[in-house]
Nucleic acid binder design. Structure first.
Lengths: 208, 208
DNA sequence: GTCTATATCATGATAGAC
DNA sequence: GTCTATCATGATATAGAC
């Protein structure tokens, strides 16, 4: 009974911390984030924060690994599926767009931290899974080329294209918004429409 | 004579500082950069650094405005030109790729700082120029659609596509490199080939 | 588990000699 | 203009009371 209550309280505090840390780290990155701000955001104080996560690095690692996984795992799952190429492409765009619309700051955060410290990737098991999944994608592309369903194309370039068209708007948003003179709601509308646009655009580009 | 010598020395030191600051800021961002490191990189000490640029913010502003300008001004120039649409697209891709291959860290730096502080844009005159230039691009697109040269397409989405396909590989590099299992030289080769790939890809996508 | 108070250290910035 | 020494602040992290 007492233990139950304590565990419940623990869990709740830890969750509050993780939520707060995610928000602050995603927004400001590791260097810009302050333990003070995370504590405030979580409704606790610095002391308690350090009680749960000994160091800033440890807390960051917890947030970053989740974020990286969110970005990568979905791609792996789709790339590995046994469906036709254009289905794969549509699924990547659809599901990725949905993910990013819910977490607009995610790609910027992950890519930036990854650029500052590329080795962070190597430590993960993801590494091999990604490569294997990608090889299945390459095979899909080659098969479609052989069957004269699509034009000859470098599978790596095609992959870059899919990811670029989907992710970039979220990273380049401030730049694009100024160019378009678009406010937040207008730009969001553009992103929603973009899902169908990308699928059609890619299909046009590769069809024979 | 004496004045000349002093001015020459000044100029040289300031240049060394700006070069060092650019390198460090581009690499680590504002929050991650240290005045100490910039001073070392420039071969001077912190005191002298503060003598030339009173504050870190001032020094950053000098670096950032140049970077932003490098990213934006070229696009403006091309968008405003009176050439056929597909020429415009080719020029953007060619010249942008060339710029980014020489400054791979540039887009990540600018976009990240811009995301942390989007208002930084508003203070610039660029703001209006960009919008005007973009309107000329929209007109180009509309004209080609009317003349049945390309398929109907939202000019804003097309613009996003061009920029995405060109810039993203430089921002998403660590992610892509792991997926491909590519080392640095292999990836660079991919980027070089990419110039022609993008132009063909876009052309295929929009042609009638 | 949670809080307050404090230690420790790094960093941006200044003062002053040369 | 350039350097050394120092200040002042703010951030991570710890100690100890409750």
């Amino acid at each position: 009974m007492t233990i139950e209550r304590i565990m419940k309280v623990d869990r709740k505090t830890e969750e509050k911390i993780l939520e707060a840390a995610e928000e602050v780290f995603h927004e400001k990155g590791f260097d810009g984030a302050r333990m003070q701000e995370i504590a405030e955001q979580a409704g606790i104080n610095k002391g308690l924060l350090h009680y749960y996560f000994k160091t800033k690095d440890k807390l960051f690692e917890a947030i970053f690994s989740v974020a990286l996984n969110r970005i990568v795992s979905k791609i792996i799952a789709i790339l590995e599926m046994d469906v036709a190429l254009h289905e794969k492409i549509n699924m990547i765009v659809d599901q990725y767009m949905a993910l990013l619309l819910k977490n607009p700051a995610l790609p910027r955060f992950v890519l930036n931290e990854l650029n500052k410290n590329p080795d962070r990737f190597i430590s993960k098991h993801i590494n091999k899974d990604v490569k294997i999944a990608f090889l299945k994608f390459v095979a899909s592309v080659q098969q479609e080329i052989n069957n004269k369903k699509i034009q000859p194309i470098d599978a790596r370039q095609l992959f870059i294209n899919i990811i670029s068209l989907t992710i970039f708007p979220f990273v380049g948003r401030p730049l694009l918004q100024v160019v378009f003179g678009a406010d937040n709601t207008e730009f969001k509308q553009l992103l929603v429409e973009r899902k169908e646009h990308i699928k059609k655009f890619i299909n046009n580009a590769i069809e024979i």
